[in-house]
Nucleic acid binder design. Structure first.
Length: 298
DNA sequence: GTTTATTCCTGACCGC
DNA sequence: TGCGGTCAGGAATAAA
């Protein structure tokens, strides 16, 4: 399930193929994913150079030389595959990949040339089609409906206890829902919220506003949560993300952070907090499974 | 305005 | 082996 670390892993895998590369061809194999693919998609992308590939929250953003940007979201099951091609005098703009080798869930294929990796085929695969791609003028990228209400990047310098205290000050909902809210902190999903709450010893059911400032100072709990979020995301990126059913790196290799989960999908197993004798429980919040230890998370 | 529930989709998994 | 049912979840949308 692509959350921030998985999307960042994908971005790093795609960058050598895409950044600075010219799109030679685009094969759109179905009209839509979760939403319709952009009108005249191939016309607007082929011939453009990708000047940068960046990430905002769980979105990948390819900035094009045409003054448009391509916003991509992996949804639940989206992945990219990168395959380098040899220099063999192929005709630009014509597809050379073997269609017989594509799977039913390969929905968009980019052929690119001129990135650090050289000529390459980049294939977007998404069995559940929860992902999407939209295009928007680069000048107004941040006013796009998908972008404009996204909250703070948790790995930037701005996230600390004081900011969490402020963001959560008037939130009557529980910590789990508040942390999943992309308009507050961007990029966290079900897995990393569970892990960050366990690391910070905070109950997912706790009302978010209880982390707000006390006597003008951010609470120790808010500081612990901020530290835990940064730590778990940083470690997960270093591990290439978490591979459950869906996520893989662009090379096809799996991430391995799933082996470092302390609570996620460990219902009934012993809590790993030192000296804690509790066990991991599961409950449903916001229609999602929450894994936590009721003994050490308060 | 804020919070919660529903919807989209298919593969994996479970029990019979 | 096969079939039906359930579950997983990011974000838009609808509803409360």
């Amino acid at each position: 399930m692509p959350e921030l670390p998985e999307v960042e892993t994908v971005r790093r895998g795609l960058a050598p193929a895409l950044e600075g590369a010219r799109v030679e061809a685009l094969d759109q194999r179905r009209p839509d994913l979760r939403f319709p693919l952009p009108d005249r998609f191939a016309d607007r992308v082929v011939g453009a150079t990708i000047t940068s590939l960046s990430r905002r929250a769980k979105y990948l953003i390819a900035t094009l030389s045409t003054d448009e940007s391509l916003i991509m979201h992996l949804g639940m099951s989206g992945s990219f595959r990168v395959a380098p091609k040899g220099e063999d005098g192929q005709t630009p703009g014509v597809f050379h990949h073997e269609r017989s080798k594509l799977s039913a869930h390969d929905h968009v294929v980019f052929e690119v040339h001129g990135g650090a990796l050289g000529p390459a085929t980049v294939t977007y695969n998404d069995p559940r089609r929860f992902g999407f791609m939209v295009m928007t003028p680069s000048a107004s990228l941040h006013e796009h409906p998908l972008m404009k209400s996204i909250g703070i990047e948790p790995l930037g310098n701005a996230l600390n206890g004081a900011l969490i205290a402020r963001l959560f000050a008037d939130k009557r909902t529980n910590l789990k829902a508040a942390l999943l809210d992309q308009s507050l902190i961007a990029g966290l999903g079900n897995i990393y919220v569970c892990e960050a709450l366990w690391r910070s010893g905070l109950a997912p059911t706790r009302e978010a506003s209880t982390l707000a400032k006390v006597d003008g100072s951010p609470t120790v709990k808010a500081e612990r949560l901020a530290d835990a979020i940064r730590a778990v995301l940083t470690e997960a990126i270093a591990a290439g993300g978490s591979s459950l059913r869906d996520h893989m790196q662009t090379s096809g290799e799996l991430g391995y952070f799933q082996h470092a989960f302390n609570v996620y999908d460990r219902e009934g197993e012993p809590c790993r907090t030192p000296r804690c004798r509790g066990q991991v429980e599961r409950l449903v919040q916001s229609n999602r499974s929450t894994f936590f230890c009721a003994t050490c998370q308060r």
